[in-house]
Nucleic acid binder design. Structure first.
Lengths: 245, 245
DNA sequence: GTAAACAGGATTGTTGACATTTTTGTTGAC
DNA sequence: GTCAACAAAAATGTCAACAATCCTGTTTAC
């Protein structure tokens, strides 16, 4: 039924694993699995951006036709997305993009608080303080401009850069996966929070404090400040909840 | 391709969702999906307990024959387990139970620290202080006995009771899912840490401190103490790493 | 006029056969 | 005796047809 494990040293020459980011060089396998990975990434992107709205039904045949993949692959992708918590599948009724109610959004923010905090701490520990200098400049200059000009699109883009840099620096694959999964579900709400009265200004100040902590290599402070940032975002959401949801 | 979402009020009469815990009454659908859920639970259990050792290959046909389910269902289960991080699937080579190296174990402990800490905080906030009285008694009496008697099996069982109670009280589904996923991967290592010299005694004292904080309704202290507990477990692991792995 | 009953259509679930890839065991040359 | 090449077996990946279920619009009874 199951085979005993091999001598345990074999992992060294590990093959490209499915979930791993495929290297640009390994373009060989035309295998449909590659397409399945792409399909999953595409759907995650479209769901996160709300191009596919919460509550929408995902039809297997339609997706198969659109992406020109067999229905079985669509099925596998939907199973994966269900495990990620992005969709719900009900027997014989198909898959639906999850719709978060207010309670679930707050629950998610509790998780984001501790996970983003850990991410800030690890990022600080794994890098040199000097490597954050470009972020100091970005948030002192352009980002402050964006806030003053109410250019929220650019502000969000800059925030995304900081966030991705921190995740990359944290270098913890499981953490990365969890943060991505959460982010995909709440990206739409995050965008709506940023435009709340005074939120962008306040958020900018908090981000600068986090960056300053990383810039001086203070991992504990970076974690604490990042957590405070998440809590304050949650407070803004609570105050304006009737406008956001 | 995707349908627009319905008027959004329809969620009230939500059907039994696949991943949700099935109620005992709803025994109607003999549907194979029920079996698939059971199969996933069974495999998770067997992998966590290391009845199926890390590095083992999981063969679709063999599992299908053993559990008397079609191969397609085994396939779906394996996809779900891959998403959970319990197995790795390599194209054309099948599924293998993940083998954690030392680095990954430490990474996992960083995650456990913040997630179990959050769990302790939420559990404290969601319950009355008095509801933890039975845990106070359990850890003052029997658990102390188990440590003195080196009855590690009972000690682990008691720890599991506390842990499950806290997760249940936290009442955050996504947190629950993340903690379960981590626990399944590291259960074997947790068991090996507890028997390290002095670990059970030290752990017992830390658990009692966490429980005392919950018993007096101090959520912040509960989180801080639970995090300290995880860090100390990690320190023990670091000190004795050559014996554990 | 309302509501239950009933088809028709559409969608998901299931099954088995087939193609492709990897693995294993054997043979042969050096 | 070791290693390389080759062939057979086994496992995974792929696909299309069939079955079961659910939704929708219409009809019919009261």
């Amino acid at each position: 039924m199951v085979t005993r494990p091999p001598p345990a040293a074999t992992d060294a020459r590990k093959r490209m694993v499915r979930t791993g980011s495929r290297s640009a060089t390994a373009a060989r396998p035309r295998s449909a699995i590659r397409q399945a990975v792409d399909l999953q990434a595409a759907l995650r992107e479209r769901i996160a951006s709300q191009e596919i709205a919460p509550g929408s039904k995902l039809r297997e045949q339609a997706l198969a036709a659109e992406y020109k993949v067999p229905r079985a692959q669509v099925r596998e992708t939907l199973i994966a997305l269900e495990q990620r918590g992005l969709i719900e599948r009900v027997p014989n009724r198909g898959a639906v993009v999850v719709r978060l109610d207010l309670t679930q959004v707050f629950e998610t923010y509790d998780l984001r608080e501790v996970l983003e905090g850990l991410c800030a701490r690890l990022a600080t520990q794994n890098t040199t303080p000097a490597s954050w200098q470009d972020m100091v400049k970005l948030f002192d200059g352009p980002m402050a401009q964006y806030v003053r000009a109410h250019d929220y699109e650019s502000f969000i883009a800059g925030y995304g850069r900081l966030r991705r840099r921190m995740i990359e620096a944290a270098a913890n694959p499981v953490l990365t996966s969890m943060l991505d999964s959460i982010y995909e579900k709440t990206q739409a709400i995050i965008r709506r929070i940023i435009i709340l009265p005074g939120r962008a200004e306040h958020g900018l100040a908090e981000h600068r404090a986090v960056i300053a902590a990383m810039r001086r290599g203070d991992a504990a402070a970076a974690e604490r400040l990042r957590r405070a940032n998440m809590r304050s975002a949650k407070a803004w959401l609570r105050r304006y909840q009737s406008f956001v949801l």
